[in-house]
Simulated scan of single mutants.
Amino acid sequence: MIKARSIALLLISVIVLALAASCGSRSNSPGASTGTDSPSVMPSGSANASPSAESTPKELVTVKFSEVIRSIFYAPHYIAISKGFYEEEGLKVDMNTAQGSDKGAAALIAGNADISMVGPETAIYIHNQKGAKTLKIFHQLTLKDGSFLLSRNKTDSFKWSDLSGKTVIGWRPGSAPQMVLNSLLAKEGVKDAKVITNIASTAMVGAFTSGQGDYIQVYEPVASSLVKEGKAYYAASLGEDFGAYPETSFVATSDYIRSHPDIIQSFVNAVAKGRQWLNTASSDEIADALMPFFEGTSKELILSSIERYKSQDTWPAVPELTPEAFDTLQNVLIDNGVLKPEEKLANLEEVADMSFVRKIGQEGK
């Protein structure tokens, strides 16, 4: 069965990547980069960017951090870096872009990342492997899918049935956007759409602009950029049409959380500050804070991306993975054949620790 093979390959890739990383020559000391896909991001002067930053400098603790991809979908995290909220909490973020939740999970298992921003399903996959290390979700960053469907040709009123007989450039099997799209197609009764899932995420746009596919599924700011350039037309928001879905989480190994609860709490606090600032800042302030992370992207595109994500209520006010959202997640995994019904976890606490989220804003936390 193709779907079953997909998850098997996913799990194997995590193990292989973890072993390769742990046997390599890369330093595991604090501050060492966890990969070469993306440079560390620490804009100069960020410690003084926030008006509430403490006047007495703290000795910063370096957190090796892996993000799944670079997208405005994760804006609160970038804001926390840009405005110095991590530094206020005593942390320096050494960031690498993994280009996949499987790679982000592998970095955690190998010890080459302390915290990863990945799909929460990775914690379930690793848990069911019964290995020596397990992952735990400690902050639910997004509660909607962040991808948008763009069409090659302009349509006046898009319907999901329009995908019948069409080709869509999508994401790799087992990834959150691929499973959300697949579940949405099933829900809408579209059975004959061809979804291409074997193109690397970094090559998807190139494949589309060179003539492959009738539709493409992308995140912001790529979606707004393609529309602005006249290379595609907006068709639908998967986040709006699918509904609530816990797509992106901050995750660490159970051992790391147990050994460094103060770091986890500081990290959670900083992201919460980023989200709060994002909701109150002016458009110019938001664009200025995010532009260092999206070189070559105009202020206009950054702001249109932010507005799209805000309008679909992407970032929950309380960044907690609830039992209801966890159930939705597991049902999607089962529907997509990457989780067997008998593997469904009854207890959220097996793969999540929401205690840090519940302490946001408390005195001394």
Rank of each mutant, 00 (worst) to 15 (best):
G131S: 10
G131V: 08
A132M: 14
A132P: 07
T134R: 13
T134G: 15
T134S: 15
L135N: 01
L135T: 04
K136T: 09
K136H: 11
F138V: 07
F138K: 09
F138Q: 04
H139W: 09
H139N: 14
H139K: 12
Q140E: 13
Q140T: 08
Q140C: 09
Q140I: 11
T142V: 14
D145P: 07
G146F: 06
G146R: 07
S147L: 06
F148H: 04
F148V: 04
L149D: 01
L150C: 11
S151V: 08
R152A: 13
T155R: 08
D156K: 13
S157D: 14
S157Y: 03
S157W: 03
S157P: 03
K159M: 12
K159T: 14
W160H: 11
W160S: 07
S161M: 06
S161V: 07
L163P: 00
S164E: 10
G165P: 11
G165V: 13
K166Y: 00
T167E: 05
T167F: 00
I169Q: 00
R172F: 09
R172Q: 11
R172D: 07
P173W: 04
P173Q: 06
G174A: 05
G174H: 04
G174T: 09
S175F: 12
A176M: 14
A176W: 11
Q178I: 01
Q178P: 00
Q178F: 01
M179D: 04
V180W: 02
V180K: 02
V180G: 02
N182T: 12
N182P: 02
S183N: 08
S183R: 06
L184H: 12
L185M: 10
L185T: 00
L185P: 00
L185Y: 01
L185K: 01
A186F: 03
A186R: 06
K187R: 15
G189L: 02
G189W: 03
G189A: 03
A193S: 09
A193K: 02
A193T: 02
A193R: 00
V195L: 02
I196R: 04
I199Q: 07
S201G: 11
T202C: 03
T202K: 11
A203P: 06
M204T: 15
V205R: 11
V205D: 03
G206Q: 13
G206C: 09
F208H: 08
T209A: 12
T209V: 15
S210I: 10
G211A: 10
G211N: 13
Q212Y: 07
G213C: 05
G213Y: 01
D214W: 03
D214H: 03
Y215E: 06
Y215F: 15
